[in-house]
Design a binder for these strands. Structure first.
Lengths: 211, 211
DNA sequence: GTCTATATAGGGATAGAC
DNA sequence: GTCTATCCCTATATAGAC
């Protein structure tokens, strides 16, 4: 799956769509542009996908499913809550850093950039809830400090996402290759350390109760 | 300026455009929709703005300028680096929480959602650089730990931005009124505490060198 | 300054040859 | 399965009356 020397046209379309949708958004993406990237005529796209909207869903759904599977695998693996949190961060950073265009598409979707009659599936909420539960369980077991779990999870998502999407526009003058392997590893350590400091129960000044 | 009982049509157009652009993005926004919100005919818009692109710029530029002025005022005020960092976070959270649509527009812009020939002004990079300098100055004075300043600033921006834009879609099931005053104050404390923990030089385990 | 009517372009989608 | 040609609608923008 990682090594695909012979890709069919359908896969090349999906790949081109991923790039266009990520960089231009759904409404900003032109089928013309996708066709050009693939090297075929615009009309040929309709042999593989009945509409622009179907193509969008093919890209988004497939990626969301893979993301969900990956995250759930981490959640269900053996280990302490803290170990799971660490692995979760590492996994999420890898997902985002290696697939910036797909990440942009999902981020855009959360901003409301999607086909006209679209409404977000509850799947993303379920997944998020599962992660929040990991934190709150750890809190009930007195392993984590009592900070706002939802805020923490959403905040970390936003931090990592922003760093590998928007920041590539705002930041390049300083940070060189923001997606280089060494940089990605540094971000992982950065975020893990930050989250650990938030969840460490000692130093009693954690006055952010859950409710 | 905060209290404007008599708004002209131009201002009402800007306000309607802000909502549409934030919720639908530049390419997803229809002038028809803006006109409806204002309660005028589509063609009347062109009496105030020569094109959709000009209207977009009127909205974005004005808000970016106000944001920059506000942030710079904090940067230039008296106080220790740590006090400035605290005020910076409070100010930014207020800006974002009270203007979610404008925040979405800027976030979208950083993702590449803008008029066709658009290229981002270097202003945002200058502003970001000024904030980063505040951190690195504090680090050279040994007041802050030697963590990656760029990553910290971008991360906090992403965290706060995401929390008040995308999270309103993903999170509402749990967090009730995410923009309520009490919630906003809680986010401020949350982020300030988080950043302080990152910048505190003690506990020598800060192994994230700048370079 | 706001309207109705219309011009013009561009992009999604279809038909049908090869 | 890919192409050319074309349909058709929508959206920006303009013209000109009131």
């Amino acid at each position: 799956m990682a090594f695909t020397p012979e890709r069919g046209t359908r896969d090349r379309i999906l790949e081109a769509a991923e790039a266009s949708l990520g960089q231009c958004g759904y409404h900003g993406t032109r089928l013309q542009q996708i066709a050009e990237r693939v090297g075929i005529q615009k009309a040929s796209l309709f042999h593989y996908f009945p509409s622009k909207e179907h193509l969008y869903h093919a890209v988004v759904d497939e990626w969301f499913d893979e993301t969900e599977r990956t995250i759930r695998r981490v959640l269900e693996a053996e280990g302490s809550p803290l170990q799971k949190v660490r692995r979760l961060i590492e996994t999420y950073v890898d997902l985002v850093a290696t697939h910036p265009d797909l990440t942009k598409i999902l981020l855009r979707q959360s901003l409301g950039d999607a086909p006209d009659g679209y409404q977000p599936k509850p799947d993303s909420q379920r997944l998020l809830a599962a992660i929040v539960t990991l934190i709150t369980d750890g809190q009930q077991a007195r392993a984590f400090a009592a900070i706002d779990a939802v805020a923490l999870v959403l905040g970390v998502m936003g931090m990592v996402t922003f760093f590998f999407t928007s920041a590539t526009v705002l930041g390049p003058p300083w940070c060189g290759d923001i997606r280089g392997a060494s940089h990605v590893e540094r971000v992982k350590r950065h975020v893990i350390q930050l989250v650990e400091r938030c969840l460490t129960p000692e130093r009693g000044d954690l006055n952010l109760a859950v409710a």
